[in-house]
Computed example of a mutant assay.
Amino acid sequence: MDTSPPLAFVVDDEPAMLDIVTFALETQGFIYQSFRSAEALWQALRHTIPDLVVLDVMLPGVSGITMCRRIKASTQIPVILLTAKGESADRIAGLEAEADDYMVKPFHPRELALRAQRLVRRAPEQSQVIAAGPFELDPAGDCVCVGTARVLLTPNEFKVLTALVSQPGKSLGFDQLLLAGWRDADRLGGRQMLKTAVYRLRHKLESAVPGAGEHIESVRGTGYRLNV
């Protein structure tokens, strides 16, 4: 299991509010990156996938509601919306944007921290078995079943294989797999690190079930795909 601290992206154009939110998250063991605009957040999401986004609604330029819709259209990252407005219409807009939670300013930092912790913890409890071909990923996040064989994986190997099994037959790029496995597409030496992880993953699968490692195919100059 991955025991690294959860990463939160926090977006607010008010420095004082950023300080309040990030301090609250730190009390629950989060690490964080903070941003002053939705555009800056979106650029960061191209390179790193956080465990949580805490997003102010009233932002200059692109609004928090619009950004929440954009995030939810392409990811399953939990989103907490923050707003100074308490009208029901604004809460409905947040829910329609598929926000996971909604808090009205001023709020108690402890409540925000506990809600954030609940959202991050909820994901593994609600996870479902992901399967393709001979592979069935354990929701616990530490192994894959290949037929009757159970293969233990490192957290990074498990995340890379999850990305491949989730989209069988589709070529996934190096950056996409680095985001899946390490949440960072710009990591120094990342491509070689990914190749090493895939090599070890193939070896583990092949050792458990002859031929299993061959399902992970290299796509020349692009990345990898799962052929099932």
Rank of each mutant, 00 (worst) to 15 (best):
M1G: 13
P6W: 12
A8N: 07
D12V: 04
M17R: 04
M17E: 10
L18P: 05
T22S: 13
F23N: 13
F23D: 14
F23T: 14
E26N: 10
T27C: 06
Q28E: 15
G29E: 03
G29H: 09
F30E: 07
I31H: 14
Y32P: 00
Q33W: 09
Q33G: 08
S34P: 03
S34Q: 10
F35M: 09
S37L: 07
E39I: 06
W42Q: 15
H47F: 09
I49Q: 14
P50A: 14
L52S: 11
L52K: 12
V54S: 10
V57G: 01
L59Q: 04
P60D: 15
G61R: 08
I65Q: 01
T66C: 06
M67L: 10
C68Q: 03
I71M: 11
T75P: 02
Q76P: 01
I77Y: 11
P78T: 15
L81N: 01
L81P: 00
T83H: 05
A84R: 12
K85R: 10
K85L: 08
D90Y: 05
R91K: 11
I92R: 02
I92L: 04
E98D: 15
E98N: 05
E98T: 01
E98G: 01
A99N: 03
D101A: 15
V104K: 07
P106N: 10
P106L: 12
F107S: 04
E111M: 12
A116T: 03
R122N: 13
P124F: 03
E125H: 11
S127W: 07
I130W: 01
E136Q: 15
E136V: 06
L137Y: 04
L137T: 05
A140W: 02
G141A: 08
D142R: 11
C143I: 04
V144N: 11
C145R: 08
T148L: 07
A149T: 03
A149H: 12
R150I: 06
V151I: 10
V151H: 10
L153W: 11
L153K: 15
L153R: 13
P155H: 15
N156E: 02
F158P: 03
K159Q: 13
V160Q: 06
V160W: 01
A163M: 08
L164E: 03
L164F: 03
S166K: 09
S166F: 00
Q167W: 02
P168N: 15
G169I: 04
S171Q: 11
S171M: 07
L172C: 12
D175Y: 02
L178Y: 13
L178A: 14
W182C: 01
R183K: 11
D184P: 00
A185S: 15
D186E: 10
G189M: 00
G190F: 01
G190A: 00
G190I: 00
R191T: 02
Q192E: 08
M193Q: 02
M193C: 02
L194V: 00
T196H: 14
T196G: 04
L201M: 12
K204M: 07
L205K: 10
A208F: 08
A208R: 07
G211V: 05
G213F: 09
E214G: 06
